[in-house]
Design a protein around this nucleic acid. Structure first.
Lengths: 198, 198, 198, 198
DNA sequence: AAGTAAACGAGACGGTACGTCGTGTCTTCCG
DNA sequence: CGGAAGACACGACGTACCGTCTCGTTTACTT
């Protein structure tokens, strides 16, 4: 449909020019030369529209196999995580969408299922390959590892507007490769005081 | 000041009852029996008001010294991080405040300087103590370690509304104790494939 | 338009109940079950709204021809002038509208062109007919005569809240019939001391 | 009192600069360097303040005796009526005060007793002198005559912002001198068709 | 000359209404 | 006859003044 494309384009324009909070459905409709009703027929609210508009611009998480575990992880972390949370667009839009999920369960579902989960699934394969190669232990808590990485970057992005440079990414990846979060590590099983190579 | 207290109380009530997005300055003013002008005299917008209201309810990051590094870290992680990002109030409000920072540099500054930095500083002392005891290497990237922890919890809180249980916290802490992010670890210096299971 | 009618009706109600000064656009909108924006779309301010509301209730100036000049004039003076300036509605509203014209040239224009001039034009025809019949001299200053009558009634209405009874109207009309303001009377042309009681 | 004078002066300044409607007690207080309470201690509202401020600037109605009735009347009409209703200050303020009387009986009383009645009384003496001299009949309705004159000028002033020139004043005065409104003229006593000097 | 009380400036306060803006629905007409 | 155009009810916004009410602080009077 012609209109749909014009709407999404206008939405991205408005988003860039004015930011999420000051972007207006009214203005999107006008600048897409579309009746508001047409717009509401396809999206129930601003968040849903923005989610679609932004989704169309996301690059996929790279999972290319090179045989080099550390390289694959670094590449994934850089492209999929740092590149994602560090991009100005995502920085501008993601917190707003997240905030809106408080009022909008459907948005929360879509954000999880259509954005996060697919990315997470692809990231996970890279870690699983590392386990397969013996570069990570079998009982690695992959979800937790990914959350540590993604969370660290999101944290810095969200509160400081900064991204992670290659050196910081390497510290992150290397620390996890050296000692990833492991299910077996729960409780007292692991003696704390032998924890590092002092 | 009498009015100020009534306003903050009303703000917290409204916040709890209706959530950030549907909370209204108008309603806060009415239910605090205060003119809107009085409110605007002290706070330029909803975000600033909420920040103050919430700030008054935050507990401090515990830094009690017990001699047990792992215990201290677990305790700090649980109280300051899991307890913070996992609390329903913070979950409801933080994303909205973060979203508003996009339009409001002053809010961003206050969020950083008045909320995050003080907590971060106190958390950091616990890690520094661990380094002092030799439980973590001298070149530990403390900021990065804290961001990994906080980020992981914030990530889960924000996208899934979940918190971390004790077991997950232990995995997090133990992994970091075993091999924290280190400045010296940058680049190729550290052989990746000898990283675990030593 | 449905809304327009509801608004004008509500305006008249409010006007009657609370008076012009205490009538509120807000309340008109509420009681007409209309958004304020709808109201502002049609009227820029309270005065414009009230002008329209009141205008819809004005009766026309009677100009019926009976052949009896004095009777026609008395009837016109009574209906159009005493009935107008003496009516509680006009008394309540006209001073306020006049006061508002100080801030609002458009209001002043409308008050003149849409209310006063049409009434004045019709009143004038009655006087012109009297001239035609020879009951008033050709050089009668019709405008001035009308202003004397209207002004006198407005004066009393405005400052004392009273109207003119039939006897007073007759004094007014008879004095003017006996000796109307005349253009030829300017300057010294007319001997002052032979003016009465001839 | 020092403050009182500063307040009245500021009021007149504000009145001139912004007009009655946009003049503000707040601003008067500020520019008179006076607390609002001080102002309210002396005047209950804007109208009362303005009434006092304006009253201090009014010139008296001239009643000088010259022996020339027509001249005295013209002079009185010009100074007291045309000069009063035609002055920009009165034009700007009087309608607003009149409008406010609808909400404020005390203001109405003061406007009548402190402004209108004194002027009316002095004007009346001029007419009474004319009666004494035989230039007007004994049964002249002096009040009505004055209302006709004042009303005519107020009418034109209020709706058209114009004043009366000398010629128009002469027409007014001469018409009244030739045939003033008379009590005896009531009813059918006066034959209508002999009304003018055809 | 000191002590005290009234009057004052400054401006915070609880209110009310303002005029504007955006939302999401509903109606009107045009192509 | 589908869709643009935009009117509409609603509700919150942030502002401006209102009239009331503390605050300290001059004043000016009393002792």
């Amino acid at each position: 449909m012609e209109a749909r494309k014009r709407i999404l384009t206008s939405a991205l324009e408005q988003l860039e020019e004015r930011g999420y909070a000051r972007m207006t459905i009214e203005q999107v409709a006008v600048s897409a030369r579309v009746g508001k009703a047409t717009l509401y027929r396809s999206w129930p609210n601003k968040a849903a529209l923005v989610l679609d508009a932004v989704r169309s611009r996301l690059r996929e998480v790279p999972t290319a196999e090179t045989g080099d575990t550390r390289g694959e992880l670094l590449s994934m972390a850089k492209e999929a995580l740092a590149g994602f949370f560090g991009s100005p667009q995502v920085q501008a839009v993601l917190p707003a969408l997240v905030a809106d999920t408080a009022q909008d369960p459907e948005l929360r579902r879509r954000l999880r299922e259509e954005v996060l989960e697919p990315r997470r699934a692809r990231s996970r394969t890279v870690l699983e390959r590392a386990i397969g190669r013996g570069d990570l232990p079998e009982d690695t808590d992959i979800s937790l590892a990914l959350e540590m990485w993604a969370g660290a970057m999101m944290f810095r992005s969200v509160f400081y507007g900064d991204g992670y440079d290659d050196a910081a990414l390497a510290r992150l990846v290397d620390a996890t490769l050296a000692s990833p979060p492991r299910f077996a590590a729960d409780g007292e099983a692991r003696p704390v005081d032998a924890a590092h190579d002092a």
